[in-house]
């Protein structure tokens, strides 16, 4: 069991990072903190893709006559795309956060919900 865990050590690291990111996204109310958690979750996915492509004794997949073993290039390609898409979504999320901050004056989820509820109460019962 221990040996098996050791052979899957890269997956354990990946899962730990993924769980950390997930916890930040769920538990923290601050929108920017949530986005940082989301990017941690994302990097754990990079690791999940890249780690199985490694071969012991292999080099980076740049062909040269003196090397025979290369690591798997396909996950590298996929993750290159994923990184750029990740930063695009991060930028979009930050723009949303900035707009929310301008509309509500806060980026804390609890306060935004409280403000929304207060406004709904006002609309339902304007005499109060």
């Amino acid at each position: 069991m221990i040996g098996e865990l050791f052979e899957h050590f890269s997956y354990l690291v990946t899962v730990f990072l993924m769980v950390t990111g997930l916890y930040i996204v769920i538990a923290r109310g601050n929108l920017i903190k949530k986005l940082v958690g989301l990017s941690i979750f994302q990097t754990s996915v990079y690791l999940l893709y890249i780690a199985p492509g490694k071969l012991l004794g292999g080099t980076a997949p740049i062909l040269a006559p003196q090397y025979g073993i290369y690591s798997n290039p396909l996950p590298h390609v996929l993750i290159l795309t994923a990184i750029v898409v990740g930063v695009a979504t991060l930028a979009l999320g930050l723009a949303l956060a900035v707009r929310i901050r301008e509309a509500y004056g806060t980026i804390e989820e609890d306060e935004i919900t409280a403000l929304d509820n207060a406004r709904q109460d006002m609309e339902r019962d304007p005499d109060r």
Partner: peptide
């Protein structure tokens, strides 16, 4: 990522991430 032989990805991660 460099240790895992993914040098292109590592460069992108350092620059973009």
């Amino acid at each position: 990522l460099v240790a895992l032989d993914a040098v292109d990805v590592a460069m992108t991660e350092a620059a973009v991430g």
